[in-house]
Amino acid sequence: MITINVVMALTVGVLYGVGFTLLLSRSLMRVLIGVVVLGHGTNLLLQLAGGPPGRPPIVGTAPPESFADPLPQALALTAIVITFALTTFLLALGYRAFVLVGHDEVQDDVEDRRIARQKVPSAPLESGDGSDDAEQDLERADDEVEAEAARGRDRS
């Protein structure tokens, strides 16, 4: 077991808190910053997992008992590389969303929208093609979908 100092524990806590808060936002840019901050927090935690700071772990430069643990450093380096790659990917994705959709916000949950759209909460699940039509194209405006649903009900 390793004890860590309080300042570092608080720092990790703040980084996690900020990261998770940003992850909860809708804009992909904020999510991206959240991922970066969270990544920093995780890497710091990895470093702390290796114990107190020490001399560079190179044989012959210092007595072995004063070495820092090199393994967490290697793990953190790998994690940094991966976070770097994913950050660039998210940047590209956010830009693409911005170009194609006009914003970079995460969409509503499809089921939530369906439920919100239902006028009668006790509508039967198998109510024919009318209400089910609604889910085919969720990008359409709500009133358009409702008009279609009304048409479907007329048909059946």
Partner: peptide
């Protein structure tokens, strides 16, 4: 190669867009 690709996609590509 990755950095070059990034510059091409995110730098050059965005400018062209």
């Amino acid at each position: 190669g990755v950095v070059l690709d990034l510059l091409r996609a995110l730098g050059d590509g965005i400018e062209r867009d």
